[in-house]
Design a protein around this nucleic acid. Structure first.
Length: 587
DNA sequence: TCGTAAGGCGCC
DNA sequence: AAAGGGCGCCTTACGA
């Protein structure tokens, strides 16, 4: 099989853009035009209009593109338009490959970091708002053709040089991520319409409480700090230090003045309603004729390998709870005749941490059916009792929960006061916090040793890259480790998380957190593959949660069985899941 | 008129 | 010595 790089060039302007419309609607927009394709590979070196391309020469071969999500969508569109009928045997995404390698996802950055070639400043930006007919016989047109050919060349080189670095499961996931996005999610339009109206009203009511707002203008200066400050001065009251819910200073301001001057609360209401409104708007605008909406998800969007959101509608941070009576998750529904099964891995990160640290006592307790906080309490000797009864010891339970969730990655006493409050509702003094932190570190010395081991590894990599091998065989990468003089004359250890990217201070706790997140991601990644291999459609996924769109006869226990499989590279680590059926996406 | 930084906030 | 981390996107502010 031969490999051919293909790169489409399309018309775009401010209105006609992927960010505004989403890829599907963009390619079907009135002014859309796929006017050029560059193809490079054995015996083919073509740049020109898609209708003239030598498709017959590359039919049934391997195609690679730098952004399968886009170029693959162009292929689909050209099929619809009857411009081409050729199809690849397989389609490989070099943007996903670049991300997997730890390089920038964009082609210029990837080529620079991985191939060492500097690309000239993006001639594509010069094409904004220009049709191909306008420029095709000009210098700009000729230059643009060369540029497109170069893009295809670099794409091909990326594949040829690094394509074999991805394991089978990673190749599968790269493809699956893109294609699941195209398949998309069915949308309940009636709920969306209702939500849009409700939220619009909330925004209007909120603005009525903002004296700095002029009548009739509902969109600008709503969150203006200077507007708020001016109003406060005119009312002869203090200006709040911030408008954040989490800022104690702001809370005091609200307690003092909030009732008489409900301004900060109104800003917060507006912000929350607006956030939801914008998302609902995307749901509305991106709906396809069949009632579904495609979505974007970035394979390897985070340096730990986790997926990240994309293109205005981020599936990974939809509010869990209804806000102003509007529940955005419930707008995502199964296609007719199907149902959702939502399944998530149970406490995957604490379990993985225990495995990595070699805390077999905790893992054994979990295997024997104890809950993770219970197991932690037993393994550290803070509690002993009947299975499943630990929750009754409310204070101890909250304590164990806070320690498990908050102290595995080096959190100190000061921070733990806040973290324990947030995670377990604890209310402790700093002195008590100090005790708890010390207690955790003493009893979980293996975790502390892991921090130390990772930090030593980092320091020993001075002047080089630091690759932490993951149990799966993949590696967590830190580029170009450099000590930098910090305060008090002690060095701050820094490295890039992305090849050629900015450097961040690193330390044992943080390296440990990355290692755990990356390992948990690998466990989850194999779940996705197993589910699909069993014919269960993974509609989308959120870090440790899959949303399956399946036939009505599929049972939760079958899903749990597939999810709860310990990878062969993580022997002895209990993997569990919780699944439920649903008629819409829900927490 | 643009791009970017910062504050704020949503999720795991 | 001590340090939770990983994202994306809304708005406003600000500078080129």
């Amino acid at each position: 099989m031969n490999t051919y790089a293909i790169d489409f060039e399309t018309y775009y302007d401010k209105e006609t853009s992927i960010t505004t419309l989403g890829t599907w609607h963009y390619l079907r927009h009135q002014s859309a035009d796929i006017y050029m394709v560059a193809i490079k590979g054995p015996g083919v070196d073509f740049v020109g209009p898609p209708k003239n391309a030598p498709w017959d020469k590359i039919d049934g071969q391997r195609w690679v593109a730098h952004n399968y999500a886009f170029d693959g969508a162009c292929v689909e569109r050209l099929h619809e338009l009857g411009v081409m009928t050729a199809r690849p045997k397989e389609f490989f995404c070099t943007a996903n490959l670049a991300a997997y390698m730890g390089a920038p996802r964009n082609l210029a950055g990837a080529s620079k970091q991985l191939l060492g070639v500097d690309m000239s400043k993006d001639p594509r930006s010069g094409m904004k708002g220009k049709t191909w007919n306008e420029v095709k016989d000009t210098d700009q047109g000729h230059a643009f053709k060369l540029y497109a050919a170069k893009d295809a060349q670099h794409c091909l080189e990326l594949y040829e040089t690094f394509g074999n670095r991805m394991s089978a499961v990673e190749k599968f996931l790269s493809k699956h991520t893109v294609e699941a996005g195209w398949y998309g999610i069915n949308v309940n339009s009636q709920l969306v319409d209702k939500g849009l109206n409700a939220l619009d009203w909330i925004r209007i009511k909120a603005i009525e409480h903002m004296p700095w707002k002029k009548d009739g203008d509902y969109t600008s200066d709503v969150l203006s700090i200077s507007g708020l400050a001016k109003a406060c001065r005119e009312a002869g009251i203090e200006v709040p230090p911030s408008t954040s819910e989490d800022d104690p200073g702001c809370q005091i301001w609200e307690d003092t003045y909030g009732e008489k001057f409900p301004w900060v609360g109104a800003m917060r209401d507006w912000r929350k309603a607006n956030m939801l409104l914008q998302k609902m708007h995307v749901l509305d605008k991106r709906k396809r004729p069949d009632g579904s909406m495609s979505y974007g998800l970035k394979y390897f969007g985070a340096h730990t390998g986790r997926w990240s959101g994309d293109s205005k509608f981020n599936l990974q941070n939809l509010p869990r709870d209804p806000c102003f009576g509007v529940d955005i998750r419930s707008c995502l529904v199964p296609r007719s005749g199907k149902k959702f099964i939502i399944s998530d891995l149970s406490q995957i990160e604490p379990r993985v941490l225990a495995w990595l640290a070699g805390n077999t006592a905790l893992l054994e307790a979990v295997k024997n059916g104890y809950g993770i906080y219970e197991a932690f309490a037993i393994s550290t000797g803070m509690w002993k009792g009947e299975k499943g009864t630990f929750k009754k010891s409310k204070e101890l339970y909250a304590l164990a929960k806070a320690q498990v969730l908050g102290l595995g990655y080096g959190c100190g006493a000061k921070k733990f006061v806040l973290v324990s409050k947030l995670m377990a509702g604890l209310n402790i003094t700093e002195a008590r916090s100090r005790e708890l932190v010390d207690d955790y570190r003493r009893k979980n010395f293996k975790v502390v040793e892991l921090w130390g081991k990772l930090e030593r590894g980092l320091r020993e990599s001075k002047g080089e890259d630091y690759h932490v091998e993951l149990p799966s065989g993949r590696a967590q990468k830190y580029w170009d480790v450099t000590p930098q003089m910090g305060k008090h004359g002690r060095p701050d250890w820094r490295a890039s998380l992305e090849l050629g990217g900015p450097k961040y201070p690193l330390y044992g706790g943080r390296l440990c957190e990355n290692l755990v997140q990356a390992t948990a991601r690998d466990v989850f990644a194999e779940c996705i593959q197993r589910l699909e291999n069993q014919g269960l459609r993974v509609l989308f996924h959120v870090h440790d949660e899959v949303i399956l769109e399946v036939d009505k006869d599929v049972k939760c226990k079958d899903v749990d069985h597939i999810m709860s499989t310990t990878p062969e590279w993580l022997p002895g680590c209990p993997i569990g899941s919780e699944s439920k059926e649903a008629e819409c996406y829900e927490k």
